[in-house]
């Protein structure tokens, strides 16, 4: 039994009177994959932000690779160390890259900040674009010259630059066209195979969650309503809300409004 890579214990986040996240606990094993499923207002994105230190939990504990990361990092040294354990890819490929920076500059900057010698950044940047299935010439491109799918590949390459042990995918394929979404999902699977990285997939899309993750937690109004192995939870949901979620997904023979009680 290996030690878990990420441990979240009794996480809670309040904004004034609003409880956005309420008593959420989970673990992610090295190389594992966890889906966090929920709709808007479920608190799933807040959980992701707390994990990467963009929000400070009101209560609870976060451990990443054995280190306490409950509070946002103090100082750039600690920030930089955490950056090498956990990264995030956001939903919107159009705002997650600095529009003025070429792909190559963006990748090299991450590498320099992470402490890689300048002489080695060029080679590593080439490796990274290759890893995400893009030709070397995109290193010279500005984001404006790239499509949404290509930008998302760059964002993934950038997240992988520091060789993190886990990447949070915060609705990272939700904004993409179906045909591009499939390319990126295949890419994520390849990367996982090659690097052994763990994924935390934050998503409202059950089919995507099923495809990517082994374990899942279902959140509603800030709390976990169901958890288990992804296949089991989706095939045989126990909680009425999970059942409703599953019934709401259009599929062959589906009738809208199925499973709804209201």
């Amino acid at each position: 039994m290996t030690d878990p890579l990420i441990v979240a214990r009794n996480l809670r986040k309040e904004y004034g009177d609003l409880v956005a996240v309420d008593d959420v606990s989970f673990e992610v094993a090295p190389g594992g994959s966890l889906g966090i499923v929920g709709e808007s207002g479920s608190g799933k994105t807040t959980v992701a932000k707390m994990l990467v230190g963009l929000e400070r939990p009101t209560a609870g504990r976060i451990e990443i690779a054995g280190t306490d990361c409950s509070a946002p990092a103090k100082g750039w040294r600690e920030r930089s160390r955490r950056a090498q354990s956990l990264q995030i890819v956001f939903q919107d490929p159009y705002s997650s890259l600095d529009p003025r920076q070429s792909v190559g500059d963006a990748l090299r900057e991450v590498l320099v900040v992470a402490g890689l010698g300048r002489d080695r950044t060029q080679a590593r940047a080439r490796e990274l674009v290759d890893l995400v299935g893009m030709p070397e010439r995109v290193l010279g491109s500005r984001p404006s010259a790239l499509s949404g799918g290509q930008r998302q590949r760059v964002a993934i390459a950038r997240a992988l630059a520091t060789e993190p042990r886990c990447v949070i995918l915060d609705e990272s394929v939700a904004a993409l066209d179906v045909s591009i979404q499939a390319q990126i999902l295949n890419l994520l699977a390849d990367i996982r195979e090659r690097t052994g990285v763990a994924y935390i997939l934050v998503s409202h899309d059950l089919a995507v969650v099923r495809h990517v993750t082994d374990d899942v937690i279902v959140m509603r109004y800030g709390a976990i309503v169901e958890r288990g192995q992804t296949g089991t939870v989706l095939d045989d949901p126990q909680h009425p809300y999970t059942q409703l979620l599953r019934e709401s997904v259009p599929r062959p023979g589906w009738v809208p409004g199925a499973g709804a009680t209201t």
Partner: peptide, 9 residues
């Protein structure tokens, strides 16, 4: 946000 997560000052 991405840069903050990436450890930029």
């Amino acid at each position: 946000k991405a840069f903050r997560v990436m450890g930029y000052s």
